[in-house]
């Protein structure tokens, strides 16, 4: 058979590339990018969900240690990503489903909520859910180490850069920890902070706010996410602190946001924690991302809330009682998908 010598020679040729590939795969770590490590850990029994605010602001190691002091022993994974990727919706929900350990019991689940994470974007007159075309929607394997699927099909930069980092790209500002916390180290002198703050403000005021539309589909997805997590432990809805300027825009976007979250929390019989008051008392790296030290303080507050006794069963509100849930986009495909789901 002439095929065997061919395969032997091919295997010999491939030894070096495969060895290089393996070296790359095993070299990838928290400095590779701001997402990779989250897809390499085992299925999680406790989770932090949300967008970049939660990714940077909620530190699982702080959460776990404060809870441990209260006698609650959990190992939390921060599975929050960013706007355009992990706003509540079918894409994120499916990914959370894959990340959640089916056997999880008595876990804690911190769901960071804000008007942006419950809004869709209007692009040329059409309502769009950006994340549906993003990699999170396509990823099947989220608990694999090394995560070949991510590195070979999602990772946007040349693979060799993982093994031999480009000396010109001296960007050490982002470090993703194994527990999913994204540590951001940027200059915190007043001028740098002011510069980033101005840029963010312009971005949100001029680009995001005019095109953001509160979304029933996203609210529905949040409800489904809570339903998914409740059997596995305690769920807490958290509104993280933001600067007053950001809060002002959020109030423009969804004036009744706190009421909505309150209704959801009552209906779902989960706790909530609103930390949006006195926003300017906290330190941010820009307009709304908490600085490391304050992130730890906020995380400790969240942990203490979780450490309290479970919420009492209060008046249950039916879904038809959400006044701001009924709106314009019930017919949107994303919402149809949700309605076809388990709910």
């Amino acid at each position: 058979m002439k095929t065997l010598p061919f395969l032997r020679r091919l295997a010999l040729f491939l030894v070096i590339p495969i060895a290089a590939l393996l070296a790359i795969l095993f070299r990838a770590d928290g400095s590779t990018d701001e997402y990779y490590l989250r897809f390499t850990t085992p299925p999680a029994t406790s989770l932090v969900l949300g967008t970049s605010r939660a990714a940077q602001g909620i530190q699982p190691h702080v959460l776990d240690s404060v809870l441990a002091e209260a006698g609650i022993h959990v190992q939390t994974m921060n599975y929050a990503f960013s706007m355009g990727l992990s706003q509540y919706g079918p894409t994120y929900l499916n990914s959370v489903r894959k990340k959640l350990a089916p056997s999880a019991r008595n876990g804690v689940f911190v769901l960071a909520v804000d008007p942006w994470s419950l809004s869709a974007t209007r692009v040329r007159g059409r309502i769009e859910f950006e994340e549906s075309a993003n990699f999170l929607a396509k990823m099947d394997l989220v608990n694999m180490h090394p995560n070949i699927e991510y590195l070979l099909t999602v990772y946007p930069k040349p693979l060799l850069g993982i093994l031999v980092p480009d000396p010109r790209a001296n960007d050490k500002r982002l470090l993703l920890h194994e527990d999913g916390w994204l540590e951001v180290s940027v200059p915190m002198d007043p001028a740098s902070v002011a510069h980033r703050r101005t840029e963010k403000l312009a971005e949100y005021r001029n680009e995001r706010l005019p095109n953001a539309v509160p979304s029933n589909a996203r609210i529905g997805a949040l409800l489904m996410t809570i339903d998914l997590l409740k059997p596995h432990g305690r769920v807490l809805l958290v509104r993280l602190p933001v600067s007053d300027a950001m809060l002002e825009m959020e109030n423009e976007l969804m004036p009744h946001f706190n009421r909505l979250i309150d209704l959801i929390a009552r209906h779902e019989q989960v706790d909530q924690l609103d930390l949006s008051a006195n926003g300017d008392a906290w330190t941010y790296t820009d307009l709304h991302h908490l600085y490391t030290a304050d992130g730890a303080r906020v995380t400790a507050m969240i942990a203490r809330k979780l450490g309290e006794s479970p919420p009492a069963v209060r008046g249950v509100v039916g879904h038809d009682r959400y006044p701001m849930l009924l709106g314009t986009e019930r017919s949107h495909p994303a919402f149809t998908v949700l309605e076809r789901g388990s709910r």
């Binding site: 040729f13 946007p156 060799l160 850069g161």
Partner: peptide, 19 residues
């Protein structure tokens, strides 16, 4: 010849663009 092919492979690994 193998060196040439390895070179091309290296370029693929090194300069892969966004998919």
């Amino acid at each position: 010849r193998w060196t040439l092919y390895y070179g091309v492979l290296f370029l693929i690994f090194r300069f892969t663009g966004q998919g």
